[in-house]
Amino acid sequence: MKRVLSNKWSIAVFVLPTVLFFTYIVIVPIFKTLYYSLLNEIQAKVGDQSHFVGLENYIKMFTVGRRNTFPGAVVNSLLYAALSIFVQLPFSMFIALLLAGGVKGESAYRNTFFVPVVISSVVVSLLWQRIYKGMLPQAFEALNWTIPKNGFLGNKDTKIWFSFLPSLWQYVGYHMLLMYGALKSIPQDVLEAAKVDGAAGAKLAFRIQIPMIKPMLKVCLSFSLIGSFKLFDTPWILLERSNMDLPALSMYVEMFSNHKYSYASAQAMFIVVECLVFTVILNWLFREQKEGGKELKRG
């Protein structure tokens, strides 16, 4: 038995193809990106080694100047993250609490709220494009409200906000479902006990339910944060083609329109590092809380 399960040949047959394929397509390219990000432009283009410029591309990325749009792009992605965390998540939580508390039509609502999640973000973006260009202006006109100058997607100051809205809208259902599932798995007797002690409504939610689903909140938070750094589809479709208002867009344009491969590689690496750093921070934050939770249980 043990011999069969430790047979080196069969292990290789099972595991090796996947590992090699995965390494070649996912891991090697990442190290190549890192390598390109340390070269100067010409070297990266012709594939000539030998000339490292060190962190020059990274320094250039964050040198504040009128023509450097990358710091602004990062700020925009953080704005999206903030919107997602402080508006989208609480809103999803509110819906999840309502549904988990048992309302009429609970599962019908849940299933319908999730519909936008399964639709392609391309379709969602194109629909919202028509809403911004067709329906909203008409509605605003009818109500005598002022439309932003150059339209919702043309105004320099506001367009970024409008480009965020579709994906914020789309993923409410996702967060709602994650939270709802966690809320539903809280043991009934805990809720009963809390209710006997007089906890209801907001008190029950803030004191009992939300603290108890912290692990799921971590999942939602990391989904929001990482999603905001990688955000591409919606703003790419909604805003004009050459815009560089978010890190992923900036990287794309620098790479495939401006052909600045090494500089764009540095931006790509920045996105990776940003994702990793925030993952580590979240893990650290939530590890602390877990220990606190243990103490509470003991007490």
Binding site: V15, V19, P29, K32, I226, M251, I271, C275, T279
Partner: peptide, 24 residues
């Protein structure tokens, strides 16, 4: 180790591999 290695891939956004991928 190999299991962790494969799962690590989930934390890495596709963006990071784009240009080398075009070469392949």
């Amino acid at each position: 180790v190999v299991f962790t290695y494969l799962l690590m891939g989930m934390m890495i956004p596709m963006h990071a591999a784009l240009y080398p991928l075009t070469e392949i």
